[in-house]
Design a protein around this nucleic acid. Structure first.
Lengths: 123, 123
DNA sequence: CGGTATCCCGGTTGATACTG
DNA sequence: CAGTATCAACCGGGATACCG
């Protein structure tokens, strides 16, 4: 007979809220979109310009998603031709430190990875 | 003529390391796996038990990924039948605070969302 | 300019079956 | 128990065309 299955902390509390956020950060683009909005409000076309490889469809989808979740607001400008401006809500801004924290780990990760690569290469 | 396109901060530095981490948190399961390993080391079967809906194939894939990136270590136990134990490396542990930060935002998100739902419902 | 509609592709996942 | 192999289904994403 094998080892007994040890109980884990059941249904870890952080996991659900976590998936909540990660669901929002989903896809290849959402984090980038949020980052782009961290400064001034930006228009649809500007965002496309900032992220040349994103398609209009996906950008639109991400923005709507973030909008319905209350992280982003959309403001239609009365110009001709019409334009729309997107910005982070205060709730959306709360994501920024968390994203930064993640990015910090990312930097360490890259660093360690490169160090590891060098070690392997020098053998 | 429309509005001029405003320049953004070019190629935001946080974005690349960010994708690095998010690449690791990819898929529906990686964050959960990491969380499950935040306490004691756990065996393959235990992890499956903790996350009933993950398939062996995906769990295996995620663990390998995390292992090659140096976030997780695998230790084979000399038992019969054989078992394997997974745990976070110190590098892996560095992810935990960041994950917590994300989860915090997640909680607020859920909170606000429910508040919003109630408002809509009471109309 | 600011989108939406359609089509198609590739990657990830889950189910199932099988191995050491 | 701890995986791997195979297959089918699904979904996000890109390209393109089109509308207000």
């Amino acid at each position: 007979m094998g080892l007994p299955v040890r109980k884990s902390k059941v249904c870890p509390p952080p996991t659900c809220p976590l998936s909540e956020v990660l669901g929002l950060l989903r896809g290849a683009w959402a984090p980038n979109v949020i980052w782009q909005l961290s400064g001034e409000p930006r228009r649809f076309g500007e965002l496309r310009h900032d992220m040349p490889k994103i398609s209009a469809r996906v950008l639109s989808a991400r923005l709507r998603e973030l909008e319905t979740r209350g992280l982003v607001t959309r403001r239609v400008l009365d110009t001709s031709p019409p334009s729309a401006e997107y910005s982070l809500t205060s709730l959306g801004r709360e994501l920024l430190p968390a994203i930064d924290a993640l990015a910090d780990v990312g930097r360490k990760l890259i660093e360690e990875w490169e160090m590891h690569q060098r070690k392997v290469a020098s053998r």
